[in-house]
Write a protein that binds this DNA or RNA. Structure first.
Lengths: 217, 217
DNA sequence: GGGTGGCTACCGATCGTTCGGTTGGAAAAG
DNA sequence: CTTTTCCAACCGAACGATCGGTAGCCACCC
């Protein structure tokens, strides 16, 4: 702390910080929201529990009546972020049908929308995982591996079926993942795009990237 | 500190940590290298100056005989990272000729290679800028804006000339930038690709992304 | 009137940084 | 050639501040 806020920080203010329904009621929820904002802005080690408590408007000791430790707070946020991504990817994939191009489009769209809807959560989940002890980070890593596997299987199937033209499936998966992941770093109310515009555009980028002949002019 | 090293951290060990010729001689240089490694692994606030001093093999007080403060250390690393990127982008652009596709290819190639050659430096320059005071961060932000402007001008010219098929030049620039930027997060000796393979592949991705008809099958 | 949610006060540890002093080897003086 | 001077590098110890976390008490509300 002792930080003066200045513009080009990691984030821009955003309306909904946490997914619907998962925010705990009352003070617990406000603590989680404040921790999310401060972790996203200053990093786990850069934000103290006193900073978080001050943002909530309570004493730092009171924080421990709701969460057992600072690390638990981070672990909970990271868990929420990964759960939300997993759920959205699964649903998108399940509703996409059999066409690899449609499946890829659904996955990219879902990933982009998670990052536009909860950029702070995505930022923390992506960048602050290193502050967690190995056993506490393991679940997030599993979810991450699952998401990557889903993407790779779609790419693989599309390539085998001739729908995609990719020389290296793994690199294509990394590239497409990179596209969506960094959305959290720049998307915000200070730029002119809607979440749907970004999603549509990036789906188009991903399809072009894999050489899908379908949707371009 | 008090951290047990575990695998999926931000980085993997890498041979050359700092660009040639810019590493100060003697202890100054070793301090800079250690700070780079620790800042990349634990973040600016997650690495103490005692950690850095211990990694160098000197007392923490000795560190202040070489650098006036911890923040100066970070500022120097970020400056070096941005300078290296600027220099490489400029040179790539200068040698690329007049064809927009060749210019884009050169820029992407240069950006990817910076991130494969100095992933730690890129990581710190990209992710730890928020720990710098505004006036100390300003030069890096200027360099960043210059790089983005270079990319946008190439895309704009290509789109106008009909070489590219992009509906939104700004989003395409962001997407291409995202591709290269995240290379620093996964490239390392534990994966099978060479720097040239990654660069070539990602150049191909970028050209496909802008709908450049030239180089694909 | 029991219990929940908040507080003040404090713990030992660690933070970034400073201070005074000790080296060891090169330069200057004899 | 020896001795003295000097300077940069380095260290142990300590500074005040802040860190994450704990103990115990108070005030309110069912």
């Amino acid at each position: 702390m002792t930080h003066i806020a200045w513009e080009p920080r990691r984030l821009t203010a955003v309306a909904a910080d946490l997914p619907e329904g998962v925010t705990p009621p009352g003070t617990r929820g406000r603590i989680l929201q404040a921790a999310l904002k401060l972790f996203a802005e200053y990093g786990f080690f850069g934000a103290s529990i006193r900073d978080i408590a001050r943002a909530v408007g309570i004493n730092s000791a009171t924080l421990y009546a709701h969460y057992p430790s600072k690390e638990h707070l981070l672990a909970e946020l990271i868990r929420l972020g990964h759960e939300e991504l997993r759920q959205r990817l699964r649903q998108a994939y399940a509703e996409a049908g059999d066409d690899p191009a449609a499946q890829l489009a659904a996955l990219v769209r879902a990933q982009v929308l998670v990052h536009t809807d909860y950029p702070l959560l995505a930022l923390v989940a992506n960048n602050e995982l290193h502050a967690l002890s190995p056993d506490r980070a393991a679940p997030a890593l599993e979810l991450r591996a699952e998401a990557r596997q889903l993407m790779l299987s779609v790419l693989d199937r599309g390539a085998t079926a001739g729908a995609f033209d990719v020389a290296d499936v793994a690199l294509a998966g990394i590239a497409i993942g990179s596209l969506g992941m960094r959305v959290a770093n720049w998307f915000g109310p200070d730029q002119p795009y809607t979440r749907e515009q970004v999603a549509d555009t990036f789906v188009g980028f991903a399809l072009r990237l894999v050489g899908s002949p379908l949707p371009h002019g």
